[in-house]
Structure formats: C-alpha cells, structure tokens
Design a protein around this nucleic acid. Structure first.
Length: 1012
RNA sequence: GCCCGGGUGGCGGAACGGCAGACGCUCAGGAUUUAAAAUCCUGUGACCCUUUCGGGUCGUGCGGGUUCGAUUCCCGCCCCGGGCACCA
C-alpha cells in the first residue's frame, strides 16, 4: 500500500484544477450567487507567513462548501501591488519597482497555489496593470466630477450643480469669487467657473497643514498616523503646510455611520468605525467680542453648562488670532489689541510679552514648532491671553479670551467656551491661569454645586437661571431651543473624521489624471487619455525636498493640451494632449501619485468582470454578484478597520449615488481572523551578572533590543534594584507548573514568564508556510490553521499541533487508501453481499466477511449522519475547528470497523474536501466507481434526522443538580416513564436514601433532575 | 482615562442555562521491532479514601446573586489583549 505522500498528490491536483478550470466562476441566471472575498494582499518581498493563509483557508473552505451546495461562487485573488515597500526596495537595489512587483507577485501566486486555494485564477487582477488602474483613474475622475448635495444627502454629478448655477436656481457664493458682488453664471469666464466648481468637488486641492513624514518622504492620511508616528515603519511625522489633493469623505460621514447599522460586522469593528467618524451632537453658540462687532462661534456638546463658562479659548490658528496679517497693516480686521488691558496678571502674558499681539505671535511660533508627538505626550496646559474679552450671551458676563493648543482648529469651530467646573481640560487650564471655576451641574437639583469639581457626569442644572432643576439631558435640549429662539446659536452635529488626504510624494502609485492650467485651475483628462501611465524613469528616488519624484520627469509633466467640453456644459471641460499640428495650451500634469488605498478601494468590483475594457464592470455582472447586498462574506485582518474599510465604503457609496453599483454598501458580512502568534515561549530573566530573577521582581514594562546573535531580546528592569534584566528563552523541559505560573525545575524559587509573541523577523519566530508544506503538506497546513481554535481568536502556532493533524490525515489515508491492493472499503453487490474491488464482481467477500461487513454497514449509519449534520452546521457558522474534530471522531469510528462501506468512505471524503482537498481528491479518484473530474463537483451530502438519534438513550440522573446515576430509556419516553425508570434504579435509590422527591425536572432527551 | 474583546487541565481548545474538559498536542505505560523511528492499544484536571474492583471531595480568574440546575444570565472586583486618546 502506497504511503501518504502529500507533496506529490498535492502538485498533481493543483495542476489538474488549473488545467481543467475546475474553480472558474460560472454565473448563471438560475443559480444563486455567493461572493466570498479575501482581503487584497500586498505582495511583499518576504512572501507569505502563516498569518496569511488563515483567512484564505477559511474563505476557501466556505467557497468549496457553497459550490457543493449549488451556488455560483465568486472566489478571486489579486494583488494590491502599488506601494512603498517595492519602491524602497527598488531604490536600494536600483531596479525598477515594476520588475520587483512582478517577481513578488509570481512568488505570492506560487505560494498560494501550493496551498490549493480554489481561486478562479482567470480573474486575477493587479493594481499596477494599466488595464486596471485605468479604472482607478476613471473612478477618481468620477469623484472629481461629483459634489455632495446635503439636501438629498447624496453625491450628484457636478454638471447638475453647474446647471443650477446657470439656471439661477442656486446663487454663486460671493466668497468663492474674491468677494465680487452678485454675479450670474453667464458673467463668469471658464477660469472662474472652474474655481467655483472646484469648491464643491469630492476631490479637491487645498493647501493645508498635512502629516509630512520625512523618513518616508511623503505625506500621510490621518488614518495612517498613530501616536504621531507613521503606521508603516513608525517614523516621526510633522505638520507642514502643503498643496494636496483631498477627498471629501466628511460629506459622507453620516451615511457611513448609518450604513453600519445594516451590516453584519462584529460590534467591535463597527465601534471602531463609529469612533473614528466620531459624531457628537451639540450646539454652536455665538459670543460677541466685548467693545466690537465681531462674533466668535464656539461648538459645545454641553450647552446646558453655558452659565458656567468663565473664559474662552481659541485654537492658535484661529482666524481671530491672525496677528501676522494685521502687523503688515494690510488688514485692520485683527482685533488683538496692542496693549494689555488694565490688571492683566503677568502669568497671562506669554513669557511676559510686551503686548497681546506679541504674546499671541510668540505662542503661535512656539506651538507650531512642537511636533504632534510632543503635543500628545505633554498635556500640561499652556496658552496666552489675547487681550480680548467675549460676552457670554446668556448672562452678559465678560470673559477673557485665550489661545491654547489644547483647542484644535480642525474640530468644531476652533473655539470653545471653557467650563472648568465640568470639563477636566478646562479645569486644568483654569488652575494654571487662576481662572474662576463654577458649578452649574450637581448630582441632585437641590444641591448648590457638585460635590467635587470638575464634575463631568450628567446631573441637574444649578446656578443657571433658564434651566435650573432640569436634568442634563433636558437642560441641553431646552438651552438649544432657547438659543435658537433668540438667535444666539443653534443645534449642531460635528464629526471627528477629516477629509482624506489623497496624494503621496511617491513614484510607485497611480498618476492623477489631472492637468494644471496656466490660470491656476485644473482640469481632468478626457476619458480617451486613460490610462495615464507613469513615465519610465531610471531615477525615481525621492528628491530630498518635498517635491515628488515625478518632478524629475519634466517631459512627462510639461505638456500641451486642448480643452474640450464633452457634455456641452461650461466648467466641465476635459483635457487631451494636443496633436503636433494643434495649438495647445501649456499645462502641467499633476506630479503627486495616489495612495496605496486607491487601488484597493474598488478591487472587489473589478473581479466581477476583470477583462472588460469598456467599463470597470458590466452592470449586469455587478447586479448578479453583489445582488443589492454586497460581498456575502469578507474575511481579513482587523488592521484595516479605519483605513481600507472606511475608504472603500466611501467610494462605493459615491458609485452607488451615481448609479454605477446596485448596493449601498460593499461588504455585507465581514469577519476578522485573529492574529497567529509565534510558538509559546518561556522567558527567564537574569541580571547582567547572570543571576536569575523571579518574575515577581521584574518590572512589567518590557522592551526589546537586538541581542548578541542579532535577534531581538526582551529586556526589563528589576523592581527592587532598578537594574537591567535580560530575558532569555528556556526549553519547555527546563520548567514546570507550580501554583499560578511556571518555575525553573532546577530552582523552583524562580518563576518564569510564559507567553506567545507576535511573529517578527527580528524575534526569529516567523513560521514560513513553505516549510510546513514541505514537511507535512498543504492539507495539514490548512487543517491546522483551522484546527487551532476559533477563527476570530488570537492563537499561538504549534508545530506539534501540525503533526497532530498530519497524523489524522495519515489515518484517513490508511483507512481509505485504495492503492494497488484491495483495501478495507467494500462495495455493495446487488445480492446484498459486498466486494472489495472497484471492478464489479471481483474480490467478493465470503459469507463470514459479508456478515461482518453488513454489521459494520449498520453500525456506521448513525455516526455518518451525525457527522454530516455536525460538519455542515459547523461550516455554516465558520466553526472549522469543531468541524475538523468531528471528522476526526468519524475517522476514529472508521478505524475501528473491520470493513468500511463505500457510502461511509465517500461521505468522509466529501466532507473532508473543503478542508483538505488534495487528499480528498486523491482518495476519491482511487475509490469512486464513477469519478467526476473532481470530487468538488459532487453535491454536498444530506443527512436524515431520524437516523441521527439512538433508539435508546443513556440519560444522566441528577439529585439536586448533582450527577447521581444514569438510566437507559427509549428515546421517545415521556417524563413519567423516565422518572419511573430512575426510581427503579438501585444506584439512584441508594443516593436518595429514602428522601421523597419533591419535584422531577426532565429535559427532553437530555437529563433528569430530581429535587428532594 | 474612556470603549471593546478575553480569562476553562501541562498546552490549543469543546460544551442550545442541563453529564465540564469533546477533538488534538504533551507526557507515561504497554504491544510491535534485533533495535530505533513509525504505527497500534491504555491512561493522563487536582486532592483524598480503597490491596483490587471502585468510591468520595473540590474544580471553568476572584466575590456575591438569580435558578431545580450557571463555564453560560445579572452585579461588583482582579488580570491579560486590542482600539481610541486635549475631538470641547
């Protein structure tokens, strides 16, 4: 009998699947669709690690299962291949990133194919392929040509806005035209029209402070900055003003929020998105500047505390604090006085500045030089008095106005009313500057003030004439109502989310299909100009300045263009390259490129129709596969919670508004797989002289540094002496369990740490799937990835565990292998007997053997049907670990049989196929009488509920909830019969010891509890 | 600080409010083998009683509660992991 040799059978079947296009998606009108999607991988130079195949295996199992259930399955794979790592490697090795990308993709594809995933490889896509990014650029132009209409709460074509201006249905805001008086659309020239429309587009250009990362040589989106450092690489990020492309995702904030309610995503993921969007309901309140006409509007979520506002704070960048302009004398609007008001405390004059203007300017300089990181780490309150006062509109009180960097220009109106009694930040500032703190909310309405300030909880309004006694909730509503009535303010909703910074100063990304015109405006490329490809460059290194690499491609950048109006509507001209004989306008291409997220925002749509060169996707295909709900199941890591998943929802909603897709949301159901950690490690700490230190004496804040062998080692310090401690790995046989933790065998006084670490190259605990496949085969890899535990849970890798599932597959092989010799699988003959060979009428069993085989055939029926039921249910709920367990149990039953009936063998293989397809295919080919090209083409088996249950139950009997015996009863016995049987049981009687049964509780088919 | 997850044998984990620890790993003993590997069989939560057969007590992070019955539901803590963090 041939041994189980995964390497050779896996290669064989992978080749056959590809050649016979077994897993090609086959949409058909009468077949229900099922779209199961993996998160778009970035083909890195490192290749796969075992974390990748976790989600991929889960989706593959479901894809194979759904095919068996008669669905048309969409299960594609492709490459998110633009991006920094390839570009950085290209610079290092002086190779074009396109070459590196291609190599990495080939490697990734090879690795994925070696795991036996049932992707439809005809649909493979690649974001760096011009045939793909032609449509990324096309969608960008759709965003560019769309404005958000708040009245209908949806995006609309920009031409419709132009038409409203043209017809006079909408006035042109004067501030958009340098304050010119009322003009009509027909008064405007093309430049002016472009300027007006640019203000509304979902893709717009703005000069604003951005997150500049010098180490990466590019700006980053807010979502890509974590703790003031770049998400990729952890490099410092600074704020710098730059001209950048932005996408108006903020317009869709409410839609993005509302859409979450309709999705089958985990609560924690929805929460992350909700927090990121950050809606808060409050009010804007207008404060007059004392002795002037100016008004400052603040945003507050606690209008009920208005009576407790004792000062006001502006962001340092607030327009009212713009002293730079006034100092040149150009603008007399600056209200900051040039002398301190009488009795200004010295502590208010920033660094004892001579005048408020100087104080404001000095403070602005200081705060703008501080990095994001410094700002975040140091929350001590600083600020400068502006010399100005505001009038509290509800009580007429005059309050001083400060600037401070704890107020952010980007949120609300960049100005706050400070209520130090009920806000800890204001409280801290008031403490630092000696400002009054008053209580206007208390725990109960009859208190004079809150027990302790700052009191931030809800309570009852006090010391607030308009609203005294009202609960915080009611007071808030009442106050807004009164403010609105008197024109002092109104209800306002704010969102934390900012517009999406969409350009990067890199080479390896999609070029913007935009040209800059001599008049300072810009125009989109005509559709006929797409795709706009990157110029071939040998030097694509960063320039060392903030100029992107494409600035070096002057011939590509500087062009002659012709503007055309395809829609006939002025203001929406498109640009095309001038022909040699044409008199073109000199123009410059946009030289920033799009961020990596661009290509992944819509890739799931391209899979549906990947070779279409007339549309990003045929509408019929989109309707069929997305069926108004979006992707049926999307599995991936949680790291994209606020990046890809927010961005692509945004793009999708725009496409939906414009009528290009049929569903409002792209991903109906989403599951996050848990991280796979490295193998569990025991860490022993020693000080520098090598003396062991027990874990209790080690400070809990660990760090790591490169050790002598180049690998990262854990370091910490002694709680007692503060001395440096070094963690080193010890072997499992050096430790033993003692009490709560593990101790050293040779010195049980020393407790060691036990935990699993994230896989990382520096720690040297990365597991390469190629090695696992070489040693145990792809089926074992797949099986173990799923057997480790629940999909969504974090779990540590274990090589011994892989061996466990490998042994399981070997046992399956030994049970069912049909090889050259006849095996234990027996086939029924028409006369009721059995034969051992596949060929009819050979290898007939003798009468004794027939009797054994018949007994086995009867015995296997119930386990078989129960296994079908269990595996089916487990796969449906993505509980693959328990599905595998029950297949192991079923196989253990088969192992105990003398003869294995064909039906049981086929059931085993059919159920195994989604999980371990290669071995299933191979054994199926060996055993099946009439084989299809693949076992995956067979339908899923059904189970018979009546065959799942035993005729006789072995019921546990409890007395007062404690297990006290068992009784055998027929499975349809009623409560009385069961109690009767229990009472006749000698063991139960002994336990009852004569006590009368007060009440029996019988749970049908499960257990009996006797209450005494 | 705020908001989510999660704490079950030596380990990964299983268990519609109903027999806690399925399945797998580890370890131990046995069979097979000249021997080893592989394979097969048996045992493997802790403690206690019993020569054996067997039996008992405790046990799902800790403390309470609801219930005939709680790993599961409720309240209060502790620990671990993740997210957010001067967002008014």
């Amino acid at each position: 009998m041939a041994a189980y040799n995964p390497v050779s059978i896996e290669k064989k079947w992978q080749k056959r699947w590809l050649e016979n296009r077994i897993f090609a998606s086959r949409p058909a009108p009468d077949t229900p669709p099922f779209y199961v999607l993996d998160m778009f991988p970035y083909p890195s130079g490192e290749g796969l690690h075992v974390g990748h195949p976790e989600g991929y295996t889960a989706t593959d199992i479901l894809a194979r299962y759904k095919r068996a259930r008669g669905f048309a399955v969409m299960h594609p794979m492709g490459w998110d291949a633009f991006g920094l790592p390839a570009e950085q490697y290209a610079i290092k090795t002086d190779t074009h990133p396109g070459i590196i990308t291609k190599k990495n993709i080939d490697r990734f594809r090879g690795q994925l194919q070696s795991i036996g995933f049932s992707y439809d490889w005809d649909r493979e896509i690649n974001t760096t392929d011009p045939a793909y990014f032609r449509w990324t650029q096309w969608i960008f132009l759709k965003l560019y040509d769309t404005w958000f209409d708040p009245r209908t709460n949806r995006g609309r074509p920009i031409q419709e806005l132009a038409a409203e201006f043209a017809s006079g249905a909408r006035n042109i805001p004067a501030e958009l035209l340098d304050g010119h008086a009322q003009v009509t659309w027909s008064d405007l020239n093309d430049t002016q029209r472009r300027k007006v429309l640019a203000h509304y587009r979902l893709a717009y250009e703005v000069k604003a402070p951005v997150n500049w990362c010098p180490a990466l040589g590019t700006v980053l989106a807010n979502e890509e900055v974590i703790d003031g450092k770049s998400e990729v690489g952890g490099f410092p990020v600074e704020r710098r003003p730059m001209r950048q492309w932005m996408l108006r995702i903020t317009a869709y904030a409410q839609r993005l929020l509302d859409g979450l309610d309709t999705l089958e995503w985990s609560d924690s993921l929805k929460l992350m998105q909700r927090n990121w969007i950050g809606r808060s309901d409050g009010a804007q309140v207008h404060f007059h500047i004392a002795h002037g006409n100016a008004i400052v509007t603040v945003f507050t979520t606690r209008p009920d505390t208005l009576f407790g506002a004792t000062y006001m704070v502006l962001a340092p960048e607030h327009p009212l604090a713009d002293v730079q302009v006034s100092s040149t004398g150009e603008n007399s609007a600056c209200l900051i006085p040039d002398h301190w008001p009488a009795n200004t405390p010295d502590s208010w004059k920033y660094n004892n500045a001579a005048t408020p203007r100087e104080a404001v300017r000095a403070y602005q300089n200081w705060t703008s030089a501080r990095s994001e990181r410094q700002r975040q780490e140091d929350t001590a309150k600083t600020g400068a008095f502006t010399g100005l006062f505001a009038v509290n509109p509800v009580n007429g009180r005059t309050i001083p106005i400060f600037i401070s960097d704890y107020v952010l220009m980007g949120y609300g109106s960049g100005a706050i009313m400070a209520v130090p009694g009920h806000d800890r930040r204001d409280f801290a500032f008031a403490g630092a500057f000696g400002l009054p703190v008053e209580s206007v909310v208390a725990e109960s309405p009859d208190q004079q003030s809150a027990a302790a300030l700052p009191f931030e909880d809800n309570g009852y309004a006090v010391n607030s004439p308009w609203i005294n006694g009202l609960s915080t909730e009611a007071a808030r509503e009442k106050m807004i109502e009164l403010l609105e009535k008197q024109g002092l303010g109104r209800l306002q909703i704010n969102y934390k989310i900012r517009d999406w910074l969409f350009s990067r100063q890199r080479y390896w990304g999609e070029p913007f299909p935009i040209v800059h015109l001599p008049d300072g405006t810009h125009a989109p490329l005509a559709d006929s100009e797409l795709p706009l490809e990157l110029p071939p460059m040998s030097d694509f290194k960063p320039t060392g300045t903030m100029d992107p690499p494409l600035s070096k491609a002057a011939a590509w950048r500087d062009i002659q263009i012709v503007l055309e109006s395809p829609h006939g509507a002025a203001g929406s001209q498109t640009a095309r390259l001038a022909k040699p004989d044409e008199n073109g306008i000199p123009a410059r291409r946009e030289i920033n490129t799009m961020p990596q997220w661009a290509g992944s925002c819509w890739y799931y749509l391209r899979y549906l129709d990947p070779h279409n060169n007339r549309a990003f996707c045929d509408p019929q295909m989109e309707k069929y596969w997305m069926h108004g709900r979006g992707v049926d199941l999307y599995i991936g890591g949680v790291e994209h919670a606020v990046l890809h998943l927010l961005y692509s929802r945004f793009w999708h909603k725009v496409l939906y508004d414009l009528g290009y897709v049929s569903s409002d949301e792209p991903f109906q159901r989403l599951v996050n797989q848990g991280l796979i950690l490295g193998e569990a490690e025991y860490t022993l700490f020693t000080d520098e002289s090598g003396v062991c230190v027990s874990l209790e004496d080690v400070a809990p804040d660990w760090d790591s540094r490169p050790g002598p062998d180049g690998r990262a080692q854990v370091i910490s310090q002694s709680r007692i002496t503060g001395k440096l401690l070094i963690g080193c790995r010890c072997r499992p046989d050096e430790v033993e369990k003692r009490g709560e933790g593990f101790v050293l065998k040779r010195d049980p006084a020393i407790t060691v740490d036990t935990r699993s670490f994230k896989m990382s190259k520096s720690r040297g605990n990365v597991v390469n799937p190629d090695d696992v496949i070489r040693d145990f085969g792809a089926d074992s890899l797949r099986l173990f990835e799923m057997f480790m535990g629940p999909l969504e849970q974090v779990k540590p890798w274990s090589t011994a565990g892989v061996e466990g599932v490998y042994r399981f597959l070997q046992r399956v092989w030994r049970n069912l292998n049909g090889g050259e010799d006849p095996c234990r699988v027996v086939y029924p003959e028409p006369d009721g007997g059995f034969r051992r060979n596949k060929q009819p009428a050979t290898g007939l069993l003798n009468p004794d053997q027939n009797a054994e085989a018949l007994a086995d055939a009867r015995a296997i029926v119930r386990p078989m049907h129960r296994t079908i039921r269990k595996v089916t249910g487990d796969i449906e709920r993505l509980a693959f670990n328990t599905a595998i367990s029950s297949l192991m149990e079923f196989n253990n039953v088969l192992s105990r049989l003398k003869w294995i009936p064909e039906a049981a063998a086929m059931t085993m293989l059919r159920l195994l196929e989604p999980l371990a397809p290669h071995i299933a295919e191979e054994l199926y080919e060996q055993l099946a009488l009439r084989t299809t090209a693949s076992i995956s083409l067979l339908p899923w088996p059904d189970w018979d509920e009546t065959l799942c249950t035993d005729a006789e139950l072995d019921l546990p009997v409890q007395i007062n909830g404690k297990l006290s015996g068992r009784v055998k009863v027929p499975n349809d016995a009623d409560a009385d019969a069961v109690v009767d049987a229990a009472m006749r049981d000698a063991g139960v009687q002994a336990k009852l010891a004569g006590r009368p049964v007060k009440k029996p509780v019988y749970v049908q088919g499960r257990m009996l509890n006797l209450v005494v």
